[in-house]
């Protein structure tokens, strides 16, 4: 139960960064950290005590395997996260090109 709580703390750090920081790159960093925490929670739920990885072996029979389903979901989620991060970075670079800053409060002042 403590380990779920530590995972939640990691998510809250990311959430605080998204809500509080004003630099766009810092906001992207917060999104990445929150995404890591969610992926970690899925794998933690799938873990089985004294389990083995879900890959069969030719000579020995493995009985105590971890849950393969959340691992498959996380595998796709990681690659989607990379694509979304690169999209966010491109938007941030376009904003920097237009306004010359990463600070979102300054961008609001320059509107119009």
């Amino acid at each position: 139960m403590i380990i779920y709580f530590l995972c939640l703390v990691l998510f809250c750090i990311g959430l605080y960064c998204i809500l509080r920081k004003r630099n766009i790159i810092k906001i992207i960093v917060g999104i990445i950290i929150a995404e890591y925490a969610v992926n970690l929670l899925f794998i933690l739920v799938a873990y089985r005590k004294n389990g083995r990885s879900p890959i069969l072996s030719p000579d020995t029979e493995i009985i105590n395997m971890v849950d393969p389903l959340p691992q498959a979901l996380v595998l796709t989620s990681i690659v989607i996260g990379l694509a979304v991060t690169s999209l966010l970075v491109v938007i941030a670079m376009r904003i920097y090109e237009k306004y010359g800053t990463f600070d979102i409060t300054k961008i609001r002042e320059l509107k119009g």
Binding site: V79, L82, A83, S86, V89, V90, M93, E97
Partner: peptide, 20 residues
């Protein structure tokens, strides 16, 4: 799909920097 797509993203980012 993944290899070509991510390489295309990276090339696009490098070109954006060059253009600027």
């Amino acid at each position: 799909k993944v290899g070509a797509g991510l390489f295309a993203i990276f090339v696009a980012l490098a070109m954006l920097k060059l253009e600027k």
